[in-house]
Design a protein around this nucleic acid. Structure first.
Length: 566
RNA sequence: GCGCCCGUAGCUCAGCUGGAUAGAGCACCGGACUUCUAAUCCGACGGUCCCAGGUUCGAGUCCUGGCGGGCGCGCCA
């Protein structure tokens, strides 16, 4: 498909003597008009002619330069239409030839993308909020993998900070009252909530927590550290169960604690650039030059311990030295926009020219209809419950609809996970989501299961054709000439990947797959593959297989399973 | 109070980085299963693109100012 747009752009460039980069093709709103369009308005000024006249004049010259592509001037637009059989053959053959690498490229060869994703806090259950960072980050990583980048997915576990001082203090006091061994996460959560309830009334609790964190950070390998280690291990094994269900893996799992030994040199490195100052007993970098009201970045608290920002700086230095990344993407909620702005400003003040490569890939909050989720106040929806319920409901439906299926539980799990993951990737990243069970458990309409169902139907057609021994003949591409809207959409897939990766926006791919699935289901309803003339069946089967390849590849990148039956 | 993000059909959202008549899903209504899976398809209904200015041949899209909602604003992460 690229070949066609390339040819058109080259011809346009020659005919108008403008640079190719300045010319942009669009898709006509009405497909009847053509496959690609070029609006002549921008040329009006330089040529001092009316756009419709320009279109008319250009059309004649272009027609001579283009073979297999019809040119027509319609008002101020030039519309291009590719010869139907040529289009069909070109798109279908390139998809079937590439197979599961269709849409892949080498544009990222030799470049490394670091992605910071998921990053849950230990000692807390994962909520539906953590799901977003996990699935968005994983999709962004696979998008870059497909484009030939070297990617490094890092799960930056929240395993450090004063909150663990609190937890250790709470464990110290009430540890006997909870069952840490059999039900670790809820037990820790209970302690965390209780600490926050009681710290107001009991100031010694606050001091005990601060002391515990001081000891943790001092490096002393005593009882405090032992407790911390235990909490970490318990949490990580819980997380792994969720990641396995979601099909997410990481190249590195490095908690904040990993950077512990880098903290002093990190602070020193900033100090050496001469931009730090002492303010109210803390070591800070002033960011006033970027905005009068911008708070400074604090590197060390009055008591000498570090903060989130210090550890994030240590992490980004470490990553830069290790990977010399093209981009380092932080898939973190929008509530931390200020934090990342501050970090980038610090890098900027340090004179590091790679500062723009660090990007905060922010996303909207998941809220409950009645308001904000809060772990402390018990107003959360646990991810595990959502996954369980989605899987259960999908299995239930499957048993009802497809009694012949031998493994309804396994497929139900695929559909359930697909519904949850796809739903989270469906809309633009930045948009907030109001969590409702009704929405995550929807299996009809604009949902993951709709796309999965499309894939299952296409797979079924392939199976039936093979069983009947049909469709292996020479394709009559005239037979799919009428299906050019679908074929053009298939051809667009590689560009969708490029754009989705560049913008770190998986929703471009989910939206594309929804639109494509709509076209496919409509096509299936009105065209029969089996039992036609050999050339017709072969061509239609090739088209169906092309659709299957694109849907399957797209779902793979999103991390949504593509069942062949459901 | 200040800063950032969002505002498109009753609800949830697209809108190809400024182009031709603003599109889907859900819900509601009417049709289509002895024919490759009805988790589907076809049709009907549904719009002051938050408001007011501005830039432009052209604005849902860009700029300014409002309004509404969300998030954040020095020793939490």
């Amino acid at each position: 498909m690229q070949a066609f747009t390339d040819a058109i752009l080259t011809a346009l460039a020659q005919e108008t003597s403008l640079a190719r980069e300045d010319l942009k093709l669009e898709t006509p709103r009405n497909p009847e008009l053509g496959d690609f369009a070029f609006p002549c308005f921008p040329l009006a000024k330089t040529l001092r002619k009316a756009p419709p006249k320009i279109a008319q004049e250009l059309a004649e010259g272009l027609a001579k330069r283009l073979e297999g592509i019809e040119v027509q001037a319609t008002g101020p637009y030039l519309n291009f239409r590719i010869d139907r059989p040529i289009l069909a053959r070109s798109v279908i053959e390139s998809i079937l030839k590439a197979g599961d690498t269709f849409g892949h490229s080498q544009e990222g060869a030799g470049k490394t993308i670091v992605i910071d994703l998921s990053s849950p806090n230990i000692a807390k259950p994962m909520s539906v909020g953590h799901l977003r960072s996990t699935v968005i980050g994983a999709a962004i990583q696979r998008l870059h993998d497909a484009l030939g980048y070297t990617t490094v997915g890092i799960n930056h576990i929240g395993d450090w900070g004063s909150q663990f001082g609190k937890l250790i203090a709470a464990l110290d006091r009430w540890g006997e009252e909870v069952d840490l061994d059999n039900d670790p996460i809820p037990a820790l959560l209970k302690l965390y909530v209780r600490y926050h309830e009681e710290e107001e009334a009991d100031p010694t609790l606050k001091e005990a927590a601060a002391a515990a964190f001081r000891e943790l950070e001092s490096g002393v390998d005593g009882p405090v550290r032992a407790v911390w280690r235990k909490m970490t291990a318990l949490s990580l094994s819980e997380f792994d169960r969720v990641y396995a269900r979601l099909g997410v893996t990481f190249d590195e799992v490095r908690g904040e604690a990993f950077y512990e030994s880098y903290l002093d040199q990190t602070v020193q490195r900033v100090v050496d650039t001469g931009i730090t100052e002492e303010s109210e007993g803390a070591l800070v970098v002033s960011l006033k030059q970027f905005g009068e009201n911008l708070p400074p970045c604090i590197l060390r608290k009055t008591d000498g311990t570090t903060l989130y920002a210090t550890r994030d700086l240590a992490a980004v230095f470490h990553r830069w030295e290790l990977y010399s990344f093209e981009r380092c993407l932080y898939v973190v909620g929008g509530d931390q926009r200020l934090h990342f702005r501050q970090l980038k400003h610090v890098l900027d003040r340090m004179g590091l020219e790679w500062e723009p490569r660090m990007e905060h890939i922010d996303f909207g909050m998941v809220r409950l209809p009645e308001g904000r989720m809060s772990t402390r106040h018990g107003k959360v929806v646990f991810l595990q419950d959502v996954l369980d319920e989605a899987s259960r409901r999908a299995t239930e439906i499957i048993k009802e609809k497809n009694v012949n299926l031998t493994n309804p539980e396994a497929v139900g799990e695929m559909i359930g996970m697909g519904a949850v993951v796809f739903n989270d990737l469906k809309r633009e990243r930045v948009k907030d989501i109001a969590f409702t069970w009704e929405e995550v458990l929807a299996f009809e309409g604009d949902t993951g299961p709709y796309v999965q169902y499309t894939h299952a139907r296409l797979s079924s057609i392939g199976r039936k054709a093979a069983a009947a021994g049909e469709g292996s003949g020479k394709c009559d591409f005239e037979a799919v000439a009428e299906d050019s809207t679908l074929i053009l959409e298939l051809g667009r897939y590689p560009n969708v990947l490029v754009r989705a990766a560049a913008e770190a926006e998986p929703s471009l791919l989910t939206q594309y797959l929804l639109g494509l699935s709509r076209m496919i289901n409509s096509w299936i309803a009105q065209r029969r593959v089996l039992g036609q003339e050999e050339g017709v069946t072969s061509a239609r089967l090739a088209l169906a297989n092309s659709c299957k390849v694109v849907v399957s590849n797209g779902l793979g990148i999103l991390g949504v399973p593509a069942p062949t039956e459901m």
